[in-house]
Nucleic acid binder design. Structure first.
Length: 495
RNA sequence: GCCGCAUUCGUCUAGAGGCCUAGGACACCACCCUCUCAAGGUGGCGACACGGGUUCGACUCCCGUAUGCGGUACCA
């Protein structure tokens, strides 16, 4: 692969939070740029003042940084092709609008919104495609000038050729042809003087020397507008690649841009910040995201960032939509968690524990982390698994939990007593505890599992907990004995 | 409605006419391991949407149909 350095931009519209669909597009932009040794550019397309959401830019930047999609040019980092925010580029668009107007490739449209609505309605009734009827397309230059000068509001529309067709050579989908006849004379500049996406994107991509435009499939139907504009402006269009949409897990409909919560409280995240808050690792999300619509071969799925960059290519991007699979992402995340070093995992866990109100010291966590590492799917689950290590006293638990399989409550006191005796003497190391407890179980004629359950419940307050020897070791003799005594007490009171 | 795109196991995918008895992964099931839960190991279940062509030969090419998705804004 000896691709020329690509200049690729991610150009979101700041209307909402950064979601996985946008993240996947940004990721592919980044991959292509890095793979070719080119540049990844971040541009903000804020031409829709009505839907502008001020929080969204910060959310976007956070999300990109979380995923490690560092951009070379754009918002906050600058660059030679700025400004990188479209509302700061208004004079530029005006200049090209004027040029197009003078050349007769666009025209002023004085139609009111009311008339437009009426036209649409009538066209629909007549069984025609909805759209503009080109009422102002043939206004004389003189009339157009005069009405504009008189202050009458107008938009600027593109003059789409009335006949013929135009074809796009999409890098992912191959050739796509659309008849000019069915393309609308789209608005390029709104009556407030701000360009629409169609106009701004073409001007900016050209001026910023973008070589590859990666965008969602929802844009394929508007490519004729863009291609005609490149033609009218005498510019060379970039390579276009329309990415498949990401479907919701049910496989029907776009992955929603709203997060849903199941009746049991489980959140189905769609925003990058939510994945972050739940404790998905950026490297896992990066890897999974890369695979939503792209694959390397028939076997390899777990890859490092460097491998993905090295192996990525537009040619291997799928053209059919993919459904988001939380199960698979979870699997990836668990896998990445298991591959982390203990200190690394510990440092990532600490903030999550703190947030859950557990003030764990790093020293202790370094010993606990190995006990839970292979039991974690997401980081935020850790709190509920380690809380009992950091409590002075266990909350009440159902004494019935103390009863092992095939035994009854009547057997519990003897087990606890035996455990207490043995643990008062045993060496408090993994191996020492194993030896002592196994022997004790054998002496009582019990299976290890039967003997351990009351101990586990008494010391952890629950039936499902990290492995016993390691847990007891971290807890320490004093705490262990005290908790067993408390369990015994609880039983006596319960009687 | 019209236009466009898409269609391989439940899901993500491999497959660029014979390599396919269609491969891998997630999920699911069973067994093994095992102090609970995990993790890990082994095995299993499971797909080329349908109909026509083209060809000696189609998952692969062409055409229809069906289904899904996207678009049809002074939103992006």
């Amino acid at each position: 692969m000896t691709d020329k350095p690509a200049r690729v931009r991610y150009a979101p519209s700041p209307t909402g939070y950064f979601h996985v669909g946008g993240a996947r597009t940004a990721l592919y932009d980044y991959l292509l740029a890095r793979k070719t040794g080119g540049s990844f550019i971040l541009r903000i397309e804020d031409t829709d003042q009505k839907r502008f959401n001020p929080d969204s830019v910060a959310d976007l930047l956070d999300g990109l940084r979380f995923l490690g999609l560092d951009w070379d040019e754009g918002v906050e980092v600058g660059g030679e092709y700025g400004p990188y925010v479209q509302t700061e580029r208004l004079e530029i668009y005006q200049k090209y609008a004027k040029q197009l107007l003078d050349a007769g490739h666009v025209y002023r449209c004085f139609c009111t919104p009311e008339r437009l609505a009426k036209v649409n309605e009538e066209r629909q009734k007549a069984g025609l495609n909805p759209g503009y009827d080109r009422h102002c397309r043939n206004l004389s230059p003189e009339e157009s000038e005069a009405r504009a000068a008189a202050g009458e509001p107008f938009t600027i529309r593109i003059k789409i050729p009335l006949t013929g067709s135009i074809t796009l050579h999409d890098a992912i989908r191959g050739d796509i042809t659309i008849e000019n006849e069915i393309v609308n004379d789209a608005v390029l500049v709104k009556s407030n003087g701000i360009p629409t996406y169609h106009f701004a994107v073409v001007v900016d991509d050209h001026l910023m020397e973008i070589t590859h435009v990666l965008r969602g499939e929802e844009w394929v139907s508007s490519f004729p507008i863009h291609l005609h504009l490149y033609d009218f402006l005498g510019w060379e269009p970039p390579v276009f690649a329309h990415l498949p949409v990401i479907l919701n897990p049910a496989g029907k409909g776009k992955m929603s841009k709203r997060e849903t919560r199941a009746p049991d409280g489980t959140v189905y995240p769609v925003f990058v910040h939510t994945f972050k808050e739940l404790g998905y690792l950026p490297e896992a999300l990066f890897n999974y995201l890369a695979l939503v619509g792209w694959s390397y071969d028939d076997k390899t799925e777990i890859m490092t960032r460097e491998e993905i960059i090295e192996r990525f290519s537009l040619e291997r991007v799928n053209s059919s939509p993919a459904a988001w699979d939380y199960d698979k992402l979870n699997h990836f995340n668990g896998m990445y968690i298991r591959n982390l070093s203990v200190p690394d995992l510990t440092d990532r866990l600490l903030p999550f524990l703190e947030k859950a109100g557990i003030h764990a010291d790093r020293e202790t966590m370094l010993k606990i982390t190995p006990l839970i590492q292979e039991r974690l799917t997401i980081l935020s689950e850790a709190a509920a698994k380690v809380d009992f290590f950091f409590m002075d006293e266990l909350p009440d638990f159902d004494p019935a939990l103390l009863v092992p399989k095939k035994l009854t409550m009547a057997d519990v006191p003897a087990i606890l007593q035996k455990a207490h005796t043995v643990l008062a003497e045993a060496e408090f190391t993994h191996d020492g505890l194993e030896k002592a407890l196994k022997a004790a179980a054998a002496e009582m004629g019990l299976k290890a599992g039967q003997f351990y359950q009351p101990i586990r419940v008494a010391t952890c307050g629950r039936k499902v907990a990290p492995p016993l020897y390691g847990t007891l070791e971290v807890l320490g003799r004093e705490t262990v004995l005290r908790r067993i005594e408390q369990a015994q007490l609880r039983l006596e009171i319960g009687d």
